[in-house]
């Protein structure tokens, strides 16, 4: 009975829809943060954060620096823009992780799971450690 329910769940699971939701929400959050940042720069009339190039040895360091700024007594006004850019860059990565879980847990397609895992290794190195 449990096996039948699982098969039904697998048959009804629409991975494409989930990938679409991840990409769309990542984009919406990113655009929302960028708009908040632009308005914040416009209100405070600084625009300093827009002039400086983004910098970080990797995306993780870039995000950590943003969070350090967020909790500091005087965070820079373009912080939402930086967070928006970070979320934009992380969205395809999250999409790959979702695909990995789908191939491993739902479809149980080991070939596809390994292929996706191998794609994630160099990307993880570049984003988090590179």
């Amino acid at each position: 009975m449990k096996h039948v329910a699982r098969l039904k769940w697998i048959a009804s699971f629409d991975m494409e829809n989930w990938v679409g939701v991840i990409l769309q929400n990542g984009m919406l959050v990113s655009i929302g943060l960028v708009i908040v940042g632009v308005l914040s720069e416009w209100v405070t009339k600084t625009q300093s954060g827009l002039r400086d190039p983004l910098f970080g040895n990797n995306v993780l360091q870039f995000i950590l620096e943003d969070f350090r700024q967020a909790v500091s007594p005087k965070p820079f006004s373009s912080l939402p823009i930086h967070l928006g850019i970070a979320i934009l860059m992380l969205t395809p990565y999250v999409r790959l992780i979702a695909s990995l879980f789908y191939f491993a847990c739902v479809e149980k397609s080991w070939k596809q799971m390994f292929l996706t895992a191998f794609s994630l290794i160099p990307l993880t190195y570049l984003l988090l450690l590179g």
Partner: peptide
């Protein structure tokens, strides 16, 4: 998307990404 992500990490490290030019792209391209 993922091919560009790999390249973007390299440019981020080099400090070649300018938010002033990037913001209109993020708002316009979608």
């Amino acid at each position: 998307g993922v091919m560009a992500l790999a390249g973007a990490s390299v440019y981020l490290e080099a400090g070649l990404i300018e938010p002033r030019l990037l913001v209109p792209v993020i708002l316009g391209a979608p």
